[in-house]
Nucleic acid binder design. Structure first.
Lengths: 346, 346
DNA sequence: CTGAAAGCGCTTACAG
DNA sequence: CTGAAAGCGCTTACAG
């Protein structure tokens, strides 16, 4: 069994036998205990290398009743926003010695239940969840019990869990104020569904900025649509059903904004030149679209690192009350909002 | 201990005690054995639910000497190409009942060693590795031993491991032929480093297509640069140092192509109108850039699913010889290559 | 159909 | 400084 190319796994017992020591002593060497005699240690380490020993963290964790993994459940990795987020999470978890268990839900709350069930069986120390649309806290609670702490990201999900939120209201407010500063008054809120908490909050920010500027939004300034490029392009016409129509739109997110830009082009209008558009998220496409998109940057990678820090902190102190953290956002002005209304400009 | 909100974990023993059965019987219920009396089963299942029992797959796997995880090691999740790939991998692994252990290397072969070491300690059944640049098979081999099968993606990495390759040569050939068909003869190969296997293969395909058309490439038609937008923009001038200059360029990848488009614009040239550009990858930006980018689509999500299938197959048959699979690619023509040379057109 | 016993690979008091 | 024994949560022959 001392042949490194042998079939089976090399275990602590193999090393102990080869060194004529007990497993306990080898275990101490493995975890760098100062108790072990230097010569003994050297002998063991040579043997570990010689046999190609691989530590079985699962067995150790079982015995020690600890876990060295954190589960990350994401709607959809092909969304660059979540991919960046995941990259940030993994980076920070790895730095802290944890391994990321990945799960994705495809925005289905059914799959979310299944994915969480499966991941929980792998005994994660904690969970970072970016909830699928229509997630139900009541169905999640019995699944999670009280043993496994969870950090919810991006979408509110009821009490009892830590929550990392984007400052949606503030972001939409920044975008709206930016457009107001360029002389716009009739500013639409375009895209998204009112039921989603992020859409709701962004509308609130838009509304607040308008109110602050003495503008009362008309009902037809709010256009709902699924947050995809295609749907947004299709709904573009809804902005122009009544006269006078909006001259600018704060979009629910970048996908919607890009769709709107395309929809405008179809109607012979050019974003940035005769209509002003802002997005939300600052996805990579935003910088290369035609025109480049003014948007609200949320730095998803930094959010990922932040989420990881929050859950690690929670692992250290399970008893502290659940906390809500609001992550900053900032305006990234580009050409799509360049169109100003000279008449009204300050 | 029958209180579901109790501190500790609910174990098989808790359930067995509550039902006045042995752990063996409860274990059989858990895994759906037909041996168990229907009433007994019902009783146990009620108790499992009542106590909020969560299966500890790690303990079961330890005893059964199996693993239900696969490690996925990716250069960089913020690259949408790899994010899509990861999404495909996770989708297929989850469907097969495996959980994905995530690791990322940031294109550092040092980190890659560390990440693999850490992941191996979690006893994955197999590994899917998209190697960091400059990966060294000789350093990887002792790490992996012969116990853990690995599937290498995208970059060749020596023998003994399964390999899923993109058909780089064919893709570059398609792009080149596309440009030839539009009348171009002086077609550059722009970007990338010759040492990287993917760049080398793509150049080969470009060369073959040119040779096939009776065109002998001149040395200055090959411009090297780091595969980033910025570097490509900086190197644009190198295409035009000698007269007659190329009228079209096959780019190493989309990032480079987008950089070239920007670099051209700086010099007053417009891709698609007075110069033809093709990319490689079909990243999301390709469809919204100005102009939209003609590129080679590799469907990274499908590649991810394929990679997962390949490693799962390997888990079923460890003894079969290592295999190389070449994934198809296809041309996605858009506006950036629209520029044709009327004089030479067929 | 159910139970007693051993064991997966590791760690942790406790002795000495 | 090292070892013997028990145990983490589960499964697997083997009895009965």
């Amino acid at each position: 069994m001392s042949d490194p190319t042998a079939r089976g796994r090399v275990t602590l017992t193999d090393i102990a036998d080869a060194c004529e020591l007990s497993r306990a002593t080898v275990s101490l060497v493995l975890r760098g205990s100062p108790l072990v005699n230097a010569q003994t240690r050297a002998r063991v380490e040579a043997e570990l290398k010689r046999q190609g020993y691989v530590y079985h963290r699962g067995a150790a964790n079982l015995r020690r009743k600890v876990s060295s993994t954190v589960a990350l459940v994401i709607n959809d990795l092909s969304n660059p926003f979540f991919a960046e987020f995941a990259a940030g999470v993994d980076e920070a978890l790895a730095a802290a010695g944890y391994v990321t268990l990945l799960g994705s839900t495809g925005e289905s709350s059914e799959r979310q239940q299944a994915v969480l069930t499966s991941l929980l069986e792998h005994d994660p120390a904690g969970i970072i969840l970016s909830p699928a649309e229509g997630s139900d806290a009541a169905r999640l609670r019995p699944l999670l019990g009280s043993r496994t702490p969870m950090l919810v990201f991006n979408r509110a999900l009821g009490d009892g869990w830590d929550y990392l939120a984007l400052d949606n209201a503030h972001g939409a407010r920044l975008a709206t104020e930016h457009l107001l500063a360029q002389g716009h008054r009739r500013i639409a809120f375009f895209g998204g569904h009112g039921e989603s908490s992020s859409c709701f909050e962004r509308r609130k920010g838009w509304q607040a900025a308008l109110a602050n500027a003495g503008v009362t939004p008309e009902p037809q300034w709010i256009v709902e649509c699924a947050p995809t490029r295609l749907e947004a392009a299709r709904q573009t016409g809804a902005l122009f059903v009544r006269d006078p129509a909006p001259t600018a739109a704060v979009c629910y997110n970048d996908a919607v904004a890009l769709g709107l830009i395309a929809g405008l082009a179809t109607r012979g209008r050019r974003a940035g030149l005769d209509f002003a558009v802002t997005g939300f998220d600052d996805i990579p496409e935003a910088s290369v679209s035609a025109p480049p998109l003014t948007t609200i940057a949320v730095d998803p990678r930094a959010r990922g690192r932040q989420a990881a820090e929050l859950i690690l902190q929670r692992l250290r102190d399970t008893s502290a009350p659940a906390t809500t953290t609001i992550a900053p956002v900032r305006l990234h002005a580009r050409a799509s909002s360049q169109f100003t209304l000279p008449g009204d400009a300050a």
